[in-house]
């Protein structure tokens, strides 16, 4: 059985009359990358701030490693806020030293870690640069280093990829995957659903201050599948259409060239994938066939804006 490292139970928080979180519970397992998803203003940042004890919840509890969180536990977390800043007059080294020391590291430890991370990102020559001399992307890297410098067991990253170019997004992603492989737990809040699919094991979605879904990425996608299958074949498109009878409906088609097509088909009545393959056999040359699962983008939209709602809009 997986060990729960972060256990959030019944968290509620209101700012005067505005409800920011309502009875939100979720569990994050040790060594996983957990996506915290939700539209703007859903309450994600409030929840993250509560976990980091920057603000206090009205109700509910947060347990870290099985114990109720204390102020000292915050040092076990590496937190990268969405809207982050740096002290512009300080040098890169001074800044990292200051934040590392605040996290309880000794001077020599911080020095060692700074050397490691500056080498890792190949930015050793930035050491004496003032923060104000850095570009936005460069500053983002320093912020990332400051977050992981004290080797926290749990990383909470709010939009960690914003501000990075695609090359650096990939670099940060691979760094996060390395960390996960080392046994660290990562909680990721992002609107980049492609990244969620790529690196998250599980996710929870908050909408209008409430948690509306939680589970593994594959579970979340499975739950929202709508009986659509894709078939890649070589042959005549008319023959393909003719082969289908009233039990199937073509959802989309894509011509690959050289009489090759990919067609997505919706099942009607009680027809199954096997029925579909059966009617097509002999009519076209099937190269591949698979069930189409919705992407996290679709899952997100489906949860936040149900279909009837979107039609009304």
């Amino acid at each position: 059985m997986k060990e729960i490292i972060l256990d959030i139970k019944g968290i509620s928080k209101s700012f005067y009359r505005k409800e920011a979180l309502n009875n939100v519970s979720m569990s994050v397992y040790k060594g996983e990358v957990f996506g915290l998803l939700g539209p703007n203003g859903a309450g994600k940042t409030t929840l993250i701030r509560i976990i980091n004890r920057i603000i206090r919840q009205d109700e509910g509890s947060v347990r870290l490693g099985g114990n109720l969180m204390t102020d000292d536990d915050v040092r076990k977390i590496g937190y990268l806020p969405e809207e982050r800043g740096l002290y512009r007059n300080m040098t890169v080294y001074e800044h990292l030293m200051f934040l590392g020391r605040l996290k309880g590291l000794s001077k020599s430890d911080v020095n060692q870690k700074i050397d490691y991370w500056l080498d890792y990102f190949k930015i050793n020559d930035w050491r004496k640069k003032r923060i104000e001399e850095l570009s936005k992307g460069m500053a983002q890297k320093i912020q990332f280093i400051a977050t992981v410098l004290h080797e926290p067991g749990l990383l909470i990253l709010d939009e960690p990829f914003s501000g990075f170019d695609p090359v650096n997004v990939e670099l940060i992603k691979s760094t996060l995957i390395d960390m996960k492989n080392q046994g660290r737990t990562i909680m990721l809040s992002t609107h980049n659903m492609k990244s969620v699919e790529e690196i998250c094991d599980r996710a929870a979605l908050i909408h209008n201050a409430r948690k509306v879904a939680e589970g593994s990425i594959s579970e979340l996608r499975e739950e929202r599948k709508s009986g659509i299958y894709a078939v890649r074949f070589r042959g005549n498109m008319i023959a393909f259409v003719n082969a289908l009878w009233a039990g199937f409906e073509i959802d989309d088609k894509q011509e690959l060239g050289d009489d090759r097509f990919v067609v997505t088909v919706k099942m009607r009545n009680d027809n199954t994938f096997e029925d579909l393959l059966r009617v097509l056999l002999g009519q076209v040359k099937i190269e591949a066939a698979w069930e189409v699962l919705p992407g996290m983008q679709d899952v997100f939209i489906d949860l936040v804006q149900p279909k009837n709602e979107s039609h009304e809009a």
């Binding site: 980091n52 982050r84 800043g85």
Partner: peptide, 14 residues
């Protein structure tokens, strides 16, 4: 500190 948002980083430690 407030307007450049460093305060949230610091407040996650103190």
């Amino acid at each position: 500190e407030k307007s450049n948002r460093i305060v949230e980083v610091v407040l996650s430690s103190v």
